Simulated assay, not measured.
Amino acid sequence: MTSQQTIMHGIQIPPVLNVDLHVLPDFTGRVVLYIENGRVTCDRRLFEDEHICALDTFIEMAREMELRIEEVTGGTDSNSNT
């Protein structure tokens, strides 16, 4: 993929990424796109009760709510041979 940029009035404008979304024409809401090498490889509609944040933001929010986060080892899904 070649890099194409438009220069208008001395300002470089990056190329526009055209995206086909898999939603109904009357859809109103939020969509998450996964872009790899300038191409959309996946899109997903977010429901009203879903929110996205970075892990450090999640941890900060949990600390502000005084939630304790602990790493749990073992359990029924763990491999006892390791």
Rank of each mutant, 00 (worst) to 15 (best):
C42E: 05
M8Y: 03
L21F: 11
V32S: 14
V32M: 09
P14I: 02
P14S: 11
N18D: 15
N37V: 09
R44F: 02
L17N: 05
R30D: 10
V16W: 00
F47A: 15
Y34N: 01
I11C: 01
G38D: 09
V31Q: 08
F47Q: 13
V31S: 13
V19H: 10
I35S: 07
L33N: 04
C42P: 00
V16R: 00
D20E: 15
T28S: 07
R45Y: 02
L24D: 15
Y34S: 05
I7A: 03
V19M: 12
F47H: 14
V16A: 09
P25G: 02
L33T: 11
L33H: 03
N37D: 06
L24S: 13
I13Y: 05
P14Y: 08
R44I: 03
G29A: 11
Y34V: 11
H9A: 06
L17Q: 08
P14C: 12
L21N: 10
N18T: 14
T28L: 07
R39P: 00
D26Y: 04
T28W: 05
I35G: 01
I11S: 01
D26Q: 13
P25T: 04
I13C: 10
R45M: 14
R44Q: 15
I13D: 00
E48K: 08
P25I: 09
D26C: 10
T6Y: 10
L24T: 12
P15E: 11
D20S: 05
T41A: 03
R30P: 00
P25A: 06
V40Q: 05
R39F: 03
V19N: 07
G38N: 09
R39E: 13
V16Y: 13
V16H: 13
E36M: 08
H9M: 10
L21P: 09
R45E: 05
I35A: 09
P14A: 12
F47N: 15
T28F: 06
Q12T: 14
R30Q: 14
L33Y: 00
P14N: 15
C42I: 09
G29F: 10
P14R: 13
G29T: 09
P25Y: 07
G10H: 02
D26M: 11
R30E: 14
Q5F: 09
N37C: 04
L33E: 06
L46T: 10
R39W: 08
R30L: 07
V40K: 00
Q5A: 00
V16P: 00
L33R: 11
Y34K: 04
Y34C: 01
R30H: 09
H9S: 02
G29L: 12
R45H: 03
L33A: 09
I7C: 00
L21A: 14
H22N: 14
Q5Y: 11
I11P: 10
R30N: 12
I7H: 08
P25R: 10
F47C: 08
Q5G: 04
V32D: 11
G29V: 06
E36Y: 06
Q12P: 04
E36K: 14
V16I: 12
N37A: 13
F27D: 15
N37K: 11
V31N: 06
V16T: 07
E48Y: 08
I35E: 02
V40T: 02
I13W: 04
V31H: 13
P15K: 13
V16Q: 10
L24C: 00
E48S: 12
T41Y: 04
F27G: 08
D26I: 07
V19Q: 12
D43M: 05
R44A: 07
G10V: 01
I7V: 14
Y34T: 02
E48M: 01
F27W: 08
